[in-house]
Write a protein that binds this DNA or RNA. Structure first.
Length: 413
RNA sequence: GUGGCUGUAGCUCAGUUUGGUUAGAGCACCUGGUUGUGGCCCAGGUUGUCGCGGGUUCAAAUCCCGUCAGCCACCCCA
């Protein structure tokens, strides 16, 4: 019987883990420059947080959450991190201590879905939330932060899509208009779109089925339904983006799956990811804080998928620096303890050192040293031990030196 | 939740169409070629419940049924 990793999860190890850490560390550097504070919230939360925050009709809340506990205490593994961060802000009334709250996070999220490329049941998000200012500048800053991360990671194969979905008021008018527009076309639309018509009309605007896209051609865009404030706000966001040199594509049919978004929404997509083309996404939210019981504060944020960034980066060959490793080799069993002492003293100096504890020929120990990409090997045999010396070999030049055992550090650099 | 594809050595896979001795290859690993010297080369060697369970058959990796797992895709999202 073998025990496997749970479905949709992976063990991170070796190169993959290096890549993972590279991404987190890069993000951390960028956050520092943009003056965001790191926050870590628990990996599980009360069920109600997501029911209220993300929305009880969303797919994520309806069918993708890992729920546990009992009727009195229902918990879920967090499916996203915006609602938990909002909860943190509300619970600690951070807005009473400062005007603008700028937080970033990196952590695992969980969704009970069928795994596929770029989609896991446990995945990791890096994200930020900027809460407290009703300014288009915040939306633009949030977008800039992720642009900056992409730049630092030298990722260029992506596109940024931006839209405004307005406030609750303008969206209500638009919803009616869309329903009216699609009503006579329902029999021409796919099964999913017929579903969407009832549950969330806007989603049928970005259906991938070609026949549905064909029916979309004359659809009035959201843009024409934005109220004065929302329209001004959106124009200001787009102007600032251009001034900031951020390249974006206006996508009037971009809508997102969480209920909390209002006004600005955005997504970064790459064609190199497989079907799950979204690298990162986010938007503005005016009602989330109030919805979960806090003061009415606007916010904006993004969340990116670390695993999706990893897919984009794993074709690049990261530079593997030559290892600063000293490998100890004993010729006979009698020198085993002595070479261990040598290794220990090297380690004590902070230099990586290793040896084989399995008695093998010098040849196989040399092979092991080569495999571990050692820079130097220290060879100790009877000949050397008798005169209190040790042989040091430089593995890249092949040069060998016989040196006093207490002077080896003069030769290891 | 739905659909398609794939499960054979540690890894990548061939062999399945058309059932037939002892299931192969490359890589990796180990040993040797050098009394105590890596990479390259050469010689040799180790490794398999052919995913699992059942059925058909003289005979099953191969055909049939079931089941599990993985991948990819739909929905939705990171």
């Amino acid at each position: 019987m073998t025990i496997n990793v749970p479905r949709g999860t992976v063990d991170l190890f070796g190169k993959q883990l290096q890549l993972f850490n590279l991404i987190i560390n890069t993000a951390r550097d960028v956050m520092k420059v943009y003056c965001y504070d790191e926050i870590q919230t628990p990996i599980f939360e009360e069920y109600r947080l997501f029911e209220r925050g993300v929305g009880e009709t969303t797919d994520v809340v309806q069918k993708e959450m890992f729920i546990f506990g009992d009727d009195e205490n229902r918990y879920v593994l967090r499916p996203e991190l915006t609602a938990p961060v909002a909860r943190f802000i509300v619970e600690n009334t951070l807005n009473k201590q400062q005007d603008l709250i700028k937080l970033w996070y990196a952590g695992a999220a969980f969704r009970k879905e069928r795994p596929q490329k770029g989609r896991q049941r446990q995945f990791h998000q890096i994200g930020i939330e900027c809460v407290g200012a009703d300014s288009p500048g915040c939306d633009v800053e949030v977008i800039s932060v992720f642009e900056s991360i992409l730049q630092k990671l030298q990722i260029v194969t992506y596109k940024l899509y931006v839209n405004s979905i307005g406030c609750a008021n303008c969206r209500k008018d638009y919803r009616n208009k869309i329903k009216e527009y699609y009503l006579p076309k329902l029999n021409k639309l796919c099964k999913d779109c017929n579903n969407r018509y009832e549950r969330n009309v806007f989603r049928l605007l970005d259906c991938k089925v070609q026949s549905c896209r064909d029916e979309r051609t004359d659809t009035p865009p959201m843009k024409s339904f934005l109220c004065r404030q929302c329209a001004d706000f959106h124009k200001c966001v787009l102007d600032l983006l251009s001034k900031d040199g951020v390249k974006y594509i206006e996508d009037n049919f971009l809508f997102r799956g969480f209920d909390y978004y209002t006004r600005t929404v955005f997504e970064w997509r790459s064609s190199q990811l497989g079907a799950q083309s979204e690298i990162s996404g986010g938007g503005h939210y005016d009602n989330l804080l109030a919805d979960i019981g806090g003061d009415s504060l606007p916010g904006v944020g993004f969340a990116c998928g670390v695993e999706r960034l990893m897919i984009l980066l794993e074709n690049n060959n990261p530079l593997v620096p030559q290892k600063q490793l000293v490998y100890g080799i004993y010729v006979d069993e009698e020198q085993k303890d002595a070479i261990y002492s040598v290794i220990s003293s090297v380690r004590a100096k902070g230099i990586p050192a290793d040896m084989s504890f399995i008695t093998k020929s010098v040849k196989s120990q040399m092979r092991q040293a080569g495999k571990q990409n050692a820079k130097y090997v220290c060879i100790l045999g009877k000949d050397e031990a008798d005169v209190g010396k040790i042989k040091i070999k430089n593995m890249s030049t092949g040069e060998e030196k016989l040196v006093e055992q207490n002077k080896i550090f003069d030769f290891l650099q």
